[in-house]
Simulated scan of single mutants.
Amino acid sequence: MMRSKQAVAAERPRQVIGFSDRIDFPDLGWTDVESKIDTGAYTSALHCTDVKLVSKGDRSQLRFTLMGERGRKKKQFVTDQFQYKTIKNSFGQSEKRFVIKTRVLIMGRLIRAEFSLANRGTMRFPVLLGRKLLRNKFVVDVSLQNVSYQMKQQNPAS
């Protein structure tokens, strides 16, 4: 008998994370990125600038710039794997944003997730992790901070 995705996910223990953490994006070469865990947000978001559609022959590609670790270096990316979706912003207003899929490493788990591309330059955290990514994987304890980062520091990869 085949079990549903939800049944399998419900059997896995949920890990406890705090209200913020430092996480890694291996596909983007971005490590120890300060991230806010936001159960009020459905989607996750990445801080980036210069988001533009560019033509490559008969195809469109998405070009965007990520700030480096703690805002030091900038890194430009180009992908043809993206979507254009309606997202509700922090004020509850709908807006169109580009969305990419990438892997995120948190609590020793490599998770493929969708991230909307937004200019979060005025925000404290360059990354927001929403409910869609958190669901059936994590429980948030708002009294904790940097649980994943501390775990990574105690158990560095060989």
Rank of each mutant, 00 (worst) to 15 (best):
I106S: 06
I106P: 00
I106G: 00
I106W: 08
M107Y: 14
M107R: 02
M107I: 09
M107A: 13
M107C: 10
G108S: 09
G108R: 03
G108L: 07
G108Q: 11
G108F: 13
G108M: 12
G108P: 00
R109H: 11
L110I: 12
L110A: 07
L110D: 10
L110S: 08
L110W: 03
I111A: 09
I111R: 04
I111G: 06
I111S: 05
I111Q: 04
I111E: 13
I111N: 10
R112G: 14
R112T: 15
R112H: 07
R112E: 15
R112K: 07
A113W: 04
A113V: 03
A113E: 13
A113G: 06
E114Q: 03
E114G: 08
E114H: 05
F115C: 03
F115P: 01
F115H: 10
F115M: 14
F115T: 14
F115E: 14
F115Q: 04
S116C: 04
S116G: 06
L117T: 07
L117Y: 07
L117N: 05
A118H: 04
A118I: 13
A118T: 15
A118L: 11
A118C: 11
N119S: 09
N119C: 01
R120M: 04
R120D: 01
G121F: 12
G121H: 08
G121N: 05
G121M: 11
T122D: 10
T122N: 06
T122V: 08
T122Y: 03
M123T: 08
M123Y: 09
M123A: 15
M123D: 12
R124Q: 14
R124M: 10
R124I: 14
R124H: 13
F125G: 06
F125V: 09
F125S: 10
P126M: 13
P126Q: 13
P126D: 15
P126T: 15
P126H: 11
P126G: 11
P126L: 10
P126N: 12
V127P: 11
V127G: 03
V127F: 01
V127K: 01
L128H: 05
L128I: 14
L128G: 03
L129H: 03
G130R: 07
G130D: 05
G130N: 11
G130V: 12
G130W: 02
R131G: 01
R131S: 02
R131E: 05
R131N: 04
R131Q: 04
K132L: 10
L133R: 01
L133I: 13
L133H: 02
L133D: 05
L133S: 00
L133K: 00
L134V: 05
L134N: 00
L134G: 01
L134C: 02
L134T: 06
R135F: 14
R135E: 15
R135P: 00
N136K: 06
N136L: 06
N136I: 09
N136R: 02
K137I: 09
K137P: 01
K137H: 14
K137L: 04
F138T: 13
F138R: 01
F138S: 07
F138V: 10
V139M: 12
V139D: 12
V139C: 13
V140K: 07
V140Y: 11
V140M: 12
V140G: 09
V140P: 03
D141I: 09
D141F: 09
V142L: 04
V142T: 15
V142M: 03
V142A: 08
S143K: 13
S143I: 15
S143H: 14
L144T: 07
L144D: 05
